[in-house]
């Protein structure tokens, strides 16, 4: 049985790491982008962003002032046992978010949707958000994603039902139209990690898109060549648009395009996009049944899809 103290500390450390340290895969994508970028102002902007992100790891301050919606993904072994059970896991996550806010690793960003009331600790109705996936085993993998307001609010999250008559062309047209509209003037903080969900009901597609944006390792490919081809074609298309960092021009508009899919109804193909900002904050930790804690370089959410 994994003790409350162990998973609560691990949750806090995961939040802190997600807020203050750039993931190695995102960092790698920045280094590559700086090498490839031909617009000198965009290149300087990418380099300044990377320099600032590297300083955050040392100063232990947030990578960006907007520390986003707090979102947790738990990949749970079927035989995993937690002291206090999963209700206590969620309570511990809330306590860890409040602590991280109090210590300045997170900004108090979550507000009541109607009154604007700010609890000052990022805790409120249905926030933080929790998603679970059950797998074989007895460990638990915890991923924290900080989904920024820019990428979420300014058209980065969209959906459309595409007819089978329009197929892949319809999907690709929807994605390109959506991205251009949302990246104007840098609204979604490009270069983006663009997640795309294809199939399922509209909410299934939207959830797949969010996971594709927040949990896929940047640089990974979908194992099915049909979907990998869509990722590759869209990556190339979007980087040819000239949007650039913060929309001010340049040839780095996306760091990654990640597609996930579900079977869909014969009547239509739900498609959704979820855009993650250039910082693409996340961190993951594994706790084994003996209570040992391991930092993970990447969420490893999709190993078995």
């Amino acid at each position: 049985m994994i003790k409350t103290e162990i998973y609560e500390n691990a949750l806090f450390e995961t939040i802190k790491r997600g807020a203050t340290e750039i993931s190695p895969d995102v960092r790698g994508a920045f280094v590559d982008a700086i090498e490839r970028e031909t617009n000198p102002d965009a290149r300087a902007g990418l380099a300044a962003t990377l320099e600032s992100m590297d300083m955050s790891s040392v100063r232990k301050n947030p990578l960006c002032v907007d520390t986003g919606w707090p979102i947790f993904y738990f990949k749970v072994g079927n035989r995993c046992e937690l002291e206090g059970g999963f209700v206590e896991l969620e309570n511990a996550a809330r306590r860890a978010v409040a602590k991280a806010t109090r210590l300045g690793y997170l900004r108090a960003t979550m507000k009541h949707p109607l009154t604007g009331y700010d609890p000052g600790n990022n805790i409120g109705m249905n926030i933080p958000d929790f998603t679970y996936k059950f797998v074989d085993g007895d460990s638990i993998e915890m991923s924290y994603a900080a989904k920024g307001g820019g990428s979420e609010c300014f058209g980065g999250t969209r959906h459309r039902i595409v007819a089978f008559a329009d197929g892949i062309k319809g999907i690709e047209k929807f994605v390109i139209d959506s991205f251009v509209a949302s990246a104007r003037a840098g609204a979604v903080c490009p270069p983006s990690v663009l997640g795309i969900g294809i199939g399922g009901t509209a909410n299934v597609a939207a959830n797949l898109a969010k996971k594709a944006a927040c949990l896929r390792t940047v640089g990974s490919k979908h194992p099915d060549p049909m979907f990998a081809k869509i990722e590759e074609d869209l990556y190339e298309a979007l980087n040819s648009l000239g949007i650039g960092i913060l929309g001010a021009g340049g040839n780095t508009s996306v760091l990654a395009v990640n597609v996930e899919y579900a079977y869909t109804h014969i009547a239509g193909i739900a498609c959704a996009t979820s855009t993650n900002c250039m910082v693409a904050r996340r961190a993951s930790t594994r706790i084994n049944s003996d209570g040992s804690v391991e930092k993970m370089q990447s969420p490893m959410w999709f190993g078995d899809r």
């Binding site: 300087a44 962003t49 600032s52 992100m53 955050s56 990578l63 903080c189 913060l246």
Partner: peptide
């Protein structure tokens, strides 16, 4: 500010002498 502003603000800026400027990086530490 990040992004830009719309036509009404731009018209007021033209009339009264004001501009909008936008960042080119996300670099809080700099």
């Amino acid at each position: 500010g990040k992004t830009t502003m719309g036509e009404e603000t731009a018209a007021a800026m033209k009339e009264l002498g004001c501009v909008h400027a936008s960042p080119r990086s996300v670099s809080p530490n700099l």
